[in-house]
């Protein structure tokens, strides 16, 4: 029983990292209608930027925020330099997906050029494990979970209660209608890339804190857990993505009690398969709305 609660604790940490990433990706997909396969590398990039800023002696929280912000700018740059011209030419979905994978390849290798292939670690420590009732968590892990929850709650407030958030939801619901009602769709799309990049960057930092290694492929390898979460939540539905992430995070960690933890991602894949076969519109998707 102890082991179960312990696993649930770890699962919550994993889930909060996946949730941050999934919310950012899901928001972008809901607005732009195509999946960004470079998203995992956005996460890696944010983690590396935070590492470099932190190595310069800056407070770690500030460094993480800088990592997120710079990744947000990277998202904007990728949209302006690459994706937008394809959208303007009404490229087919399949072409766009190949283009995002191309950006992924470029980014991943640019990271190798800048930072090399060696593994890094963040200079901070997560602290000694605390016993909180049945759970065992480090203070760092608790801060990570709380911060993730806070960021997602902030995004929720932004989407629900600001004028700009309303524009987001309008564009994601119906692009043409939003355009017809005078919403500057291009501006919304640009901001989507900034927000999505920001979440990617922060999630990348969280991922490195959780797994304790920073390598050029960490984000890319995490990508399909994020996909699993957003498919579970229904593609393009940020709120569903949070729940999907919770399910995936808990499932991967709790399954570690029964099978070799080397097959954690195989478990997540099994869940993805089950969801795709049984309920492709997502577990938490409401009726009457596909996609």
């Amino acid at each position: 029983m102890h082991l179960l609660f312990e696993s649930i604790g770890f699962g919550l940490v994993t889930a909060s990292v996946i949730a941050l990433a999934a919310v950012g990706l899901s928001l972008q997909v809901s607005v732009t209608n195509y999946i960004n396969f470079a998203y995992g590398d956005f996460m890696t990039f944010g983690a590396y930027v935070a590492y470099s800023v932190g190595a310069a002696g800056v407070n770690f929280f500030l460094a993480a925020a800088v990592g997120g912000a710079v990744t947000g700018l990277l998202g904007l740059a990728a949209n302006l330099a690459v994706f937008r011209s394809f959208i303007e030419r009404k490229a087919r979905l399949i072409t766009l997906l190949v283009v995002t994978l191309g950006v992924s390849l470029i980014l991943q290798n640019a990271i190798v050029v800048i930072w090399g292939t060696g593994a890094y670690r963040y200079p901070i420590r997560m602290g000694n494990a605390l016993h909180l009732g049945p759970f065992i968590l480090t203070p760092g892990a608790i801060i990570l979970i709380l911060l993730a929850a806070l960021l997602m709650f902030g995004l929720h407030l932004f989407l629900q209660y600001t004028r700009f958030g309303k524009a987001f939801r309008a564009v994601s619901n119906n692009n043409d209608l939003a355009l017809a009602s005078g919403i500057d769709v291009n501006r919304v799309v640009n901001w989507t890339w900034v927000v999505s990049g920001f979440f990617a960057g922060i999630a990348g930092v969280g991922l490195v804190l959780e797994t304790n290694t920073l390598r050029p492929v960490v984000g890319f390898n995490e990508l399909f857990l994020v996909f699993a979460a957003i498919i579970m939540g229904g593609i393009g539905r940020p709120y569903g993505a949070m729940l999907g992430a919770l399910a995936i995070g808990l499932a991967t960690e709790v399954s570690g009690m029964f099978v070799d933890s080397a097959y954690k991602s195989a478990i997540a894949f099994g869940i993805l398969v089950a969801v795709l076969v049984l309920r492709p519109q997502g577990i938490f998707a409401s009726r009457g709305r596909t996609d």
Binding site: L97, L223, F224, F227, S265, V273, L276, P280
Partner: peptide, 21 residues
Amino acid sequence: VAVRRLRSDYLAIVSISVGLI
């Protein structure tokens, strides 16, 4: 695996997942 929705983005996701697994 991708049978229900062989839309290109679903299949791409499944293919990347299959590769990593």
